[in-house]
Simulated assay, not measured.
Amino acid sequence: MAENKEEDVNLGANKYRETQPLGTAAQTDKDYKEPPPAPLFEPGELSSWSFYRAGIAEFMATFLFLYITILTVMGLKRSDSLCSSVGVQGVAWAFGGMIFALVYCTAGISGGHINPAVTFGLFLARKLSLTRAVFYIVMQCLGAICGAGVVKGFMVGPYERLGGGANVVNPGYTKGDGLGAEIIGTFVLVYTVFSATDAKRSARDSHVPILAPLPIGFAVFLVHLATIPITGTGINPARSLGAAIIFNKDQAWDDHWIFWVGPFIGAALAAVYHQIIIRAIPFKSSRS
């Protein structure tokens, strides 16, 4: 057990002890410590149980995320359902609330990405290796497909009739509108992830308790309020892919590229902005 504990501390995305997950209490003495950049390739991960455990956590989190959120979207569209009264706000709360809960549950295991765009942004910032980033994205996509598949398995008829939660650019908006909404929405999300999990901020603002899942979930909620009318809100390529594959209709694939290109551009911009602008802010320890 001791060896596994030490392995979890030294390898992968979670650089802190499991009792102090990233973004909640990263340092015990509140002094700022810059985490070292993750190597591009980390061969030791492939023989580490913590590596595969993190992938399983990402799979299960994305599976549960798709299951709850697609059911909520379908309930909104079903006129004879009690859930039809929840409105856009209810759908936004479902997405944001699930992200809050799932990031809270998985932050100490995998970092709580649950989104290929988040993984991509953190990879660009050297927060995790390419090996781990690719593995996370694959597991997230598989989890999303399985989550959407379970929903369809429970209710094939309503699933087909109500669109299966697939993301499309809604009538009245152009593909450019949809792409812009996905870029900006993902920028807001990934920028929030960087800010909420920044070790420098944890030390500088030590008098402010920081619970990373809360601002991240709230960012997802706000982005959904703004962009559901435009694209149904993707900002998560795995979520869009899972729904598109299981629904498997032409309309789900017509604009599907937007829900990969937009989030990845948004994540890249957030990573660049955070590394160049925010990380350049001078640090002054609360103890000085």
Score class of each variant (00 low, 15 high):
R126G: 06
I246S: 08
E7Y: 04
A280E: 04
A226F: 13
A92R: 01
L225Y: 04
R201M: 08
I228G: 01
P37C: 11
G234W: 03
F65S: 05
F41G: 09
N248R: 04
G75P: 07
V223H: 05
A133F: 10
F194Y: 03
Y16Q: 02
Q140H: 11
L269R: 07
E42Q: 15
S85H: 06
Q89M: 09
S129Y: 02
G172V: 14
A101L: 15
K175R: 15
C141W: 09
I265V: 15
F100Y: 13
F264N: 09
I99K: 01
F65N: 04
A148E: 04
P116R: 10
F63H: 09
T28C: 00
A148M: 06
Y52H: 12
G97K: 11
I228N: 00
Q27M: 13
G266C: 01
A196L: 07
D8V: 04
G165W: 14
F283Q: 00
F218S: 06
K30C: 00
G75Y: 08
E160R: 15
K33P: 02
Y104R: 08
G121K: 01
G242L: 10
T69D: 04
N248Q: 02
I265D: 00
E42F: 00
T131E: 03
D250R: 10
K5L: 14
G112C: 01
R78C: 09
P35N: 11
V151M: 07
P171A: 15
Q140E: 14
E6A: 10
G232Q: 08
Y191F: 15
D177T: 14
P215T: 08
T231M: 07
S79T: 12
Y32N: 04
P37Q: 12
F194G: 09
L214E: 00
Q27I: 06
V220D: 03
G90R: 12
T24C: 11
T227W: 01
A13P: 03
T186D: 11
A148R: 08
C141F: 07
I278Y: 08
S240Q: 02
S84E: 01
Y173E: 13
F135K: 04
A219M: 06
A148F: 09
T62F: 05
P213N: 05
L128D: 03
R287V: 00
I276R: 12
Q140N: 13
D29L: 03
I235L: 06
C83A: 14
V134G: 02
V73M: 06
V88H: 06
I230Y: 12
F264W: 11
F264I: 09
V261L: 15
R53M: 05
R126A: 09
Y159P: 06
I278C: 03
A166K: 06
A166C: 15
L179G: 02
F63S: 01
I70K: 01
N10S: 13
I56A: 13
L179Q: 04
Q251R: 14
G164L: 09
K200I: 05
E34K: 15
P39T: 10
G149K: 09
V208F: 08
P158C: 08
A125L: 07
N248S: 06
